[in-house]
Write a protein that binds this DNA or RNA. Structure first.
Length: 296
DNA sequence: TAAGCGTGGCT
DNA sequence: TAGCCAAGCTT
């Protein structure tokens, strides 16, 4: 069997050509977009579909076209504009990142992965993505789409394991084209292929440019046989409780009373625990006289 | 390392 | 229908 890397190199041209023909024209990919716009998009896209991000990104960028603009707003403003994207702590962290960019980086989004990685809410994936997409850097970008494409096309598995492994990162690094410009395009092209064609359920193999090379297909498209994925419960969870309280605050122009806040959840112990946690997280600010608001 | 953290669309 | 899933990060 050939080394995975040499097999992988045969994927380059078909995937790059497919991307040239089928890429979506997303606003954070336009030539005139700023590194800040890319960073905002990457944070918003963490666990959130493109369609839901689009309108929020547009408004966010019109309100706060630079990191310093966001840093000048309150954290509560950021949480309110975040709307229903979910995981509102991301809005808080993006606000904190903007302040760090203003205070420690002269107001300009840093271009190297290591510095990006120090920003709140920026992990390995987001640091690599911003370096690659905003600055054209040679970076190993591994998100859930990339993992799935590699798992199928190269490794021959239906789906990647629940958690990212070192082997996957090493494979992704080995698969990067030698040419820097091709490498930059490759990163976004593999992600796009995973998002549009090599999807988690019902992959569109008939439209795939590398179906003839895909080890998973060549093995007869076996079903996933890895460790079970832990499904997230929702009904009755702290997350649902927290979501209701933040939604009430978000939809209220000013502070709300403790009575209003408590009315969104029956279970008293759970409600109190969640409210305490929201305050500890900085998503809710307690005021005098049993009143609460988004952080000011 | 695994669990916690929102929200809504899709099958 | 009820899971499953979506450009992850933090602790």
């Amino acid at each position: 069997m050939p080394h995975p890397t040499s097999a992988g190199r045969r994927l380059h041209r078909p995937v790059l050509d497919w991307y040239a023909a089928h890429q979506r024209d997303l606003p954070w990919r336009l030539p005139q977009r700023s590194p800040w716009g890319v960073l905002v998009s990457e944070v918003m896209l963490q666990q959130t579909p493109v369609a839901r991000v689009l309108p929020v990104w547009e408004r966010w960028m019109s309100l706060w076209p630079s990191p310093s603009d966001l840093a000048a707003a309150t954290p509560g403003d950021a949480v309110r504009e975040w709307g229903r994207l979910g995981y509102p702590r991301r809005a808080l962290r993006l606000h904190a990142a903007a302040a760090a960019i203003r205070d420690a980086h002269g107001g300009a989004v840093p271009g190297d992965e290591a510095t990006l990685r120090t920003l709140p809410g920026v992990g390995d994936y987001t640091a690599a993505a911003v370096a690659a997409f905003a600055f054209g850097a040679r970076a190993t970008v591994v998100d859930t789409n990339v993992r799935r494409v590699h798992a199928r096309a190269v490794t021959g598995d239906a789906l990647p394991a629940p958690a990212l492994t070192r082997a996957e990162v090493d494979l992704a690094t080995a698969l990067l084209p030698d040419d820097d410009t091709d490498a930059a395009t490759w990163n976004v092209a593999v992600m796009e292929l995973g998002a549009l064609v090599c999807t988690a359920r019902a992959p569109r193999c008939a439209e795939c440019p590398v179906a003839h090379l895909c080890r998973w297909r060549l093995a007869g498209s076996p079903t996933y046989d890895g460790p079970p994925r832990r499904g997230q419960r929702w009904e009755g969870t702290d997350r649902q409780c927290r979501g209701r309280m933040v939604q009430l605050l978000r939809d209220s122009p000013g502070p709300v009373s403790g009575a209003q806040l408590r009315a969104v959840w029956e279970d008293e112990a759970q409600r109190d625990r969640c409210l305490d946690a929201l305050v500890a997280d900085g998503l809710v600010e307690p005021l005098e006289g049993d009143r609460f608001r988004l952080p000011g």
